[in-house]
Amino acid sequence: MGIQEQYRSEAAALLSSGEVKLVIGFGAGSTADRRRPLFARTPEEAEKFVLDAACIANLSTYLVAEGLLSDGKKVGVFLKPDGIRSVNILISEAQLKPEQVVILGYAIENGKDVVPLEGCNISDFSIGEKIRSHTPPTHVIEAAEKIEAMSAEERFEFWKEEFAKCIKCYACRQVCPMCYCRRCIVDVNQPQWVSTSSHTLGNFEWNLVRAFHLAGRCAACGACDRACPVNIPLRLVNYRMGKEVRSAFDYVAGENSDQKPVLASFKQDDPETFIL
């Protein structure tokens, strides 16, 4: 039995036993190479799940959808390691109760083989070591190094041109599991703290606010980067912030659910280089 059939029947079993009220997975998309999120509430619906190397979205975003878990019932969700990291972060930030989430874990190897990850509760997945040794794709590192090698002026020019493209559609925020604020600062309008105008300055404000707010919290799933309709390389922002946090605090977000959020906690030996 292939992994797709195996996970279909596991999802169906979770639903028919009543253990979960809903399973969030993938279904066929509008073209042959697309997959779309699929919500199954019955064992029959679970038969429509697809699981293959095109299932790259981070479905943990839906776990923080308003009202989804407020009835205390459990949900099942298909997650890759980046989704599992996201769940770890959400638990450590007290946004999820571990017992409410049943994970159908899988990994995509070499961009084509889908393999199961053993376990079903978040505590079953010890992916900490794997994350530490995980290296982002070479093209990301190369692009990031190219930017780091620029002078401050060149770097500013680069980001100015990229952020000038932003249309403030907030797709990056909406697909991000870590952007769960019920009212994002840019939506706080009494008074309007961050201007809604999508001119270059306003776009800088938005993208910097978001980068800062995600520092030390990003699961590096790449969802924001893929969602951006104007192709701003948000992966480079995430990569740099991740690197910064790692070198300053030896911290990688999402290693386990007992981690204290790095910028919301204090350690005696934290570096204090910013204090002159």
Binding site: C169, Y170, A171, Q174, A227
Partner: peptide
């Protein structure tokens, strides 16, 4: 159900 409520479809 799966719409995440971004502005992508309207702005484009």
């Amino acid at each position: 159900l799966r719409c995440v409520g971004c502005g992508s479809c309207t702005f484009l």
